[in-house]
Design a protein around this nucleic acid. Structure first.
Lengths: 214, 214
DNA sequence: ATCATTGTTGACCAACTGGTCAAGATTTTT
DNA sequence: AAAAATCTTGACCAGTTGGTCAACAATGAT
């Protein structure tokens, strides 16, 4: 009664069971449609349909379309950086990098919609996440690039540009979520079924060989 | 006078100078806006503005928004497969692959809008190019994958899945067009200026090492 | 010069879409 | 049980957008 008014946003303590349930349902529906159709390609009616409720009810929980999108991106970015954060400067260099590849690939496998939401956003110039990309993301990447450069200086892995190494890991792993349709089409039904396993094996080899000191 | 009616589409002989000029201007404008805002995010008014003419005039040359998009995708796909076609089974294996990487990266550098148009399309499930992807593209990839497999059997390059090798080349090279905003933001102004050159060097090393027979 | 063809656009329309609102239904609190 | 708070939605509105049309302008063939 007294604590709830304190929090400006409706983020800290969900007040009612219904609110919690409906907000979850709406966000799930919004993720589905945003990731499949982009921001402008999505109508609130679509989200409402997918969530099984009326449009005004959706707008009762989120004041506008933008807000749903913003919340989804916020949630996404929060977890997006996790695998990168996990790179341990004190671990075995090659193993750390391979772990990172596998973790990112696992995200593509388990959360393709989030990956596509992110891709959509960046593709259109990242208008809503510009600050985060230039701030938190850049800082973290710079830090981890320094770690990798340290490994290179110690001759633990091959000499290469650490930033571009990170980019190539992002590119190859996210590709399996963002371009899934193309990959399945090219592989054909039979080979597509275990595409993530074969991808995992391939990327493991590529980066293992690619980073071995020569 | 007799030849023109023969061609159903207005594709073979452009009739007038004005038609040719305006269609080019419109397509240029459409590419700009489609690639930046996606199909649904683009309005015909935007295209008309960018082309410096009125909306009805745009629709005088292209019967609807869909048609402009379709023509752009057709043009794109025509040239999209070229670098892959150029892989020569009789060339030096590693060199052929590295050439392919460089050609694809060059396309990202020179034609980022086309790359983003394609990415947008695939991201949304490739509804308009499904046939092409499952047909011409799949066939060509299968053929080149067989070539690569031949090289692997001859121990000319490391053993790996040829399809996924091609995917990883697509991913890493197109990433520099599709995620350019992110890359520039992370690299910072100074390092971003020559990002394609550093990328070229990195990818060269990665695939050279990655494919060396061990 | 004249006339048919081609090119151009302001005005308009119907459908869609983001968002509001008032009125009623449901749930929670007392 | 009844009052308060929360939840739900049909009806509605204003702005946008894809596309049409009639009228007018420019161009090219004769």
């Amino acid at each position: 009664m007294s604590r709830q008014e304190k929090s400006r946003a409706s983020n800290s303590k969900r007040r009612t069971r219904i609110q919690q349930e409906n907000e979850t349902r709406i966000l799930e529906a919004a993720l589905e449609t945003f990731s499949a159709n982009g921001f402008r390609g999505t109508t609130i009616d679509q989200i409402a349909d997918a969530a099984g409720m009326s449009k005004p009810n959706v707008l009762y929980y989120f004041s506008n379309k933008e807000e749903m999108h913003r919340v989804l991106l916020d949630q996404l970015l929060d977890t997006w950086l996790d695998p990168l954060r996990n790179i341990d400067a004190d671990g075995d260099p090659l193993n750390e990098i391979l772990q990172y590849v596998q973790r990112k690939l696992e995200i593509s496998r388990k959360h393709p919609r989030e990956s596509r939401l992110f891709a959509n956003e960046v593709l259109q110039g990242a208008p809503r996440i510009e600050d985060m990309i230039k701030g938190a993301l850049k800082n973290l990447v710079d830090e981890k690039a320094a770690t990798i450069q340290g490994w290179i200086d110690e001759k633990k892995i091959a000499d290469c540009d650490p930033h571009h190494l990170i980019f190539s890991i992002w590119a190859t792993t996210q590709h399996y979520a963002d371009f899934d349709v193309q990959i399945c089409a090219v592989l054909g039904k039979k080979n597509a079924s275990n595409r993530f396993d074969t991808a995992s094996e391939f990327l493991g080899k590529l980066f293992t060989n690619g980073l071995r000191v020569s």
